[in-house]
Design a binder for these strands. Sequence first.
RNA 1: GACCCGUUCGUCUAGCGGUUAGGACUCCGCCCUUUCACGGCGGCAACACGGGUUCGAGUCCCGUACGGGUCGCCA
Length: 467
Amino acid sequence: MTFSLQAPMIVHQKMNSTKVKTRFAPSPTGYLHLGGARTALFNWLFAKRHNGSFVLRIEDTDEGRNTDEACEAIIKGLNWLGLNWDEGPSQNLEKGEYHQSQRQGIYEEYLERLGNLDLIYDEDGATRFKVPKGEINFHDQICGPQSINLSTTGSKAWDKEKGTEIETNPDFIIRRPDGTFLFHFVNVVDDIEMQITHILRGEDHLTNTIKHVALFNAFEKEPPVFAHIPLILNNDGSKMSKRDAGSGIEWYKDNGFLPKSLINYIALLGWSPKDDREILETNQIIELFDFDHLNNSNSRFDLDKAKWINSQYIAKLQDSDFLKVAKEYSEGAPDELTLLTKSRINCLSDIADVLAPIMDESFPIDESSMAKIQSKHETKDHLKSLMDKFEKIEHWTSENIKEALQKHASEIDQKLGSLMFPLRVCATGVGQGTDLMPTLESIGKDDTVKRINKRLGKIFPTNCSDE
RNA sequence: GACCCGUUCGUCUAGCGGUUAGGACUCCGCCCUUUCACGGCGGCAACACGGGUUCGAGUCCCGUACGGGUCGCCA
């Protein structure tokens, strides 16, 4: 590979003539977290919006902290979300040119260029980059113009333990004594090498970016366009950490979120269509995705809202598609029963909870429901005589069940509604659930009658005289 | 501590000098369904504070407070 010192490109030329190229550059130190997923999403969206390409680059230069499992988790997470990359590691997880650990030669060549420019020096075996004196500037698409003097600002550090300011060397280290390179350096080299045009990343990188710009300047390359997006915080405003439920993408997969709905939700954290829409197709988001639709304040994560959006996506599913995705959560329940849960769940994992009282004939009776029924003694006789009618139903269909129920209600001069509740509780143990008639149909005549008689005995014990 | 970013209902947000400050989640009420849920309708609820600029400020400027971030031989 040869290097030529090119004159910096003119910005407007770059915008017009160069294909947009974005990247997501995670370090494989843990699973794919929500914030990372959103960063990936925004870069992906921006690339799509401008007919550009999206690169996945694995920043695994810190051997001690990187694991193959983490790398796999990140790739799986992106796959599940449908954030496909135009360039990046292969699906078989083999390490290649998009793993920084495999790019040592490239970094060494770039380091040599810095050496020729007399911009580096050795300190105890490590290599430091001489930061330029004076202000360094760049314009962030979200945070506005930035200007920092690294040689002065970088000369002070904060000793957390002691709570004091200490003198420090503003020339930052780019290579360890063992020859491996550090984040700031490899990040910039690869963005140059891979011709990245736009970088969208978390605001936690905003101050670091000055260092990157200094490096771009040293290589005489026009820096990419930067856009630092605000962070996602926990619901209580604290920083999201790996321990928090819902901080990892895997959690959403396991709990029965649909990937499109999660995409929709995290897009809404920091981005807005600027109208009243909230449920948007991915390509609608792509159409509108641009810097002026991004806001600049941190947002808190709200699981309730994420669930609501997911429920909207589930509701929109065709029945056949619903059954497909519901299969692994429905524990072998018949399709017609699983279908009844569709409008009552936020997540697919809720299906099991809704189905449990129907599938389990001895599901425990909900206490407050039991107390409610006990307060009306006549319910026992009403249900008992209803069972006689149920026994006589020839074709056990929800229509016939309803008809029998209606007939019974008018005979005993009761509202149908007042019968529904105790009937439901005796059949399933709980006071709420799927549509009652089709549910009873699915349970079957014999089982329905058996369950009701059994629970009736528990709710109104005979030894407790009721005369 | 220094530097950087921010601050509209509890939460996500719209608003880009003149609005009864809009929508959504949550919560509550009503309707629908002779049940529960879904759905529909309605309600509670916000411009952090103080100064300017202006005829007029959530919108512009400056402070203060608060929140977040950065200051590693982590990324």
